[in-house]
Nucleic acid binder design. Structure first.
Lengths: 146, 146
DNA sequence: CGATATGCAATAATGATAGACACATATTTT
DNA sequence: AAAATATGTGTCTATCATTATTGCATATCG
């Protein structure tokens, strides 16, 4: 099954950013789930690491829900990515390749280095964008739809 | 199951580059499969688009096999990636999200744009490296293993 | 105390990827 | 010409990471 955690977490964060901009106090996981066309449980699972990372604040009990814990302009897409994907790398090579020649003995490390560079590259790209900018881009895209 | 096509194709290409450097004429899919610890069928399926892209030359029939069709210094890792992964993007968003608000109406396009930027970033990184340089790095790593 | 939210664990369903096998086709050797 | 052995490809099955579902404990408001 294809991994949709980051796109989904991003949409959730954008929804929370919109709520923040419109001074809506809290959104419930059920409301967010409706927006991302998924289940409240899945949404809460995605929220857990975002809360852990201090990007989102949750209120338990009746009338509870979640909201951004800081302003959207203080959150980068890189933080969202790192929180939701954890240690999982963008690329993972094969492991336990039998060591038989120059290539098979060293590709594993070579590929890991390459994957590191890719991760850093993507990290820089996402780290340079804030959630507030992303919401603004969303508005631009919306306007261009005519 | 995790997608190992690119790391595997890369290892295959590195093996072919090593063969080229050592003046070995051809490698069979069975020999390559042993090196990557996989099946000849899988290797041939990975080779197909590389042949299609003109990076690899194959000889059919008994004593057949494959070899690089040009020198390893004329092949970039970007070409290998593009050939083996085709149109598949590094990131794919959800599709068919119900359109209910500013966010749900436009995230799809927003995410596609972001994925495009990531692809370009990775493409630049891989496009700047040749297979010959990669083989050289493999030798460096091998030497550092002491 | 009832209603309703989050938090979390366990289990089932889904679906992309790799493996296995069959067989047509191409080429060399005998 | 036939045998041996390689590539090329289609189909079916197995694997397994991800997502969905369910159940229940916990927290908070009215």
């Amino acid at each position: 099954m294809i991994d949709v955690r980051f796109p989904t977490a991003l949409q959730i964060m954008l929804s929370l950013a919109l709520a923040q901009a419109e001074s809506v106090e809290l959104l419930s996981s059920a409301q967010l789930a409706e927006g991302v066309d998924s289940s409240p449980t899945f949404v809460r699972r995605l929220l857990a690491p975002l809360i852990q990372a201090g990007l989102v604040r949750s209120t338990m009990g009746r009338d509870g829900g979640v909201s951004l814990s800081v302003h959207a302009s203080a959150i980068t897409l890189g933080e969202i990515y790192k929180a939701t994907m954890g240690e999982k790398r963008l690329w993972t090579g094969r492991s336990d390749i039998p060591h038989r020649c120059l290539v098979s003995c060293n590709v594993e490390r070579f590929f890991a280095n390459l994957a590191d560079e890719v991760d850093e590259s993507v990290g820089r790209l996402l780290g340079a964008r804030t959630l507030a900018e992303a919401l603004s881009e969303l508005r631009t895209i919306d306007a261009e739809r005519i």
